[in-house]
Amino acid sequence: MNAALANATPADPFILKVDGITVDFDGFKAIDNFSMTLERGQLRVLIGPNGAGKSTLCDTIIGRVRAASGHVWLNGEDITALPEFEIVRRGICRKFQTPGVLPSLTVRDNLALAARRDRRWWTGFGHAVDATERVRVDEILAAIGLEDRATTLAGLLAHGEKQWLEIGMVVATGAELLLLDEPTAGMGPNETSRTAKLIKSLLGKHAVLVIDHDMKFVEELGGKVTVMHQGKFLKQGTVEQIRNDPDVAAVYLGRSEREEA
């Protein structure tokens, strides 16, 4: 399953290359010739006003939405046309915008499902749980602070806990690249700050692409920021550079002026 990762040339520092992606929804270009790269183990924050195409970009990377043109490369392999589950098995996992936990499974079963290494369907029968997978689940339970909720049904968790559980699930898959779509949506300041710490602890082992609106959270995360606007690449730089960039300000201000009017 991880053959693709093992065979990747170490000289190539990029885990992800998005090359000239265009997504066309019946004539509306949700993404317009967008390109970006992400290095192994690094963090990238993707920001942009509503409708900039951030979530659509995530959808395209994981195969939920198919690009009209352009390519997505993971570790030097073109994954643009692979089925979703194959893309995941190559090493990308995504957290959805609203928590996508499985409500009628316990927290532990949610994580165990994500942590299972052998995901070929004919191996899914029987009751045995792999010992290393169990250890992995315990580690992640500790990391996301849900040890005492392990036997709770995921549907009964508080909103913030669901968000952490889904981050935990995404990590549990062992994917090398994690896409986190608004991981702090609906969280208070304390929870947000815990989430930032959690994400930073993942770096190195995982490359992480985060989408978020909350500039305070983006600052806390640090790392490089890429700005999208109307489906196009707008700017890239440190949080500081982006904050002081007149073009970015215009995009955001233009929007907030409209909203205030």
């Binding site: 994981i62 939920r64 089925p83 979703e84 589950f85 995941v88 098995r89 996992c93 995504r94 959805f96 996508g100 936990v101 499985l102 409500p103 009628s104 499974l105 079963d109 165990a112 499902l113 994500a114 299972r116 995901r119 369907w121 899914g124 029968f125 029987g126 009751h127 045995a128 749980v129 699930m169 898959t173």
Partner: peptide
């Protein structure tokens, strides 16, 4: 484990698919 996967698929087929299961 098959039963767990069935319930998971019932509740959120997309989530299961994007955990790498067909």
């Amino acid at each position: 484990r098959y039963g767990i996967l069935l319930r998971a698929t019932r509740d959120g087929e997309n989530r299961v698919r994007f955990l790498g299961y067909n």
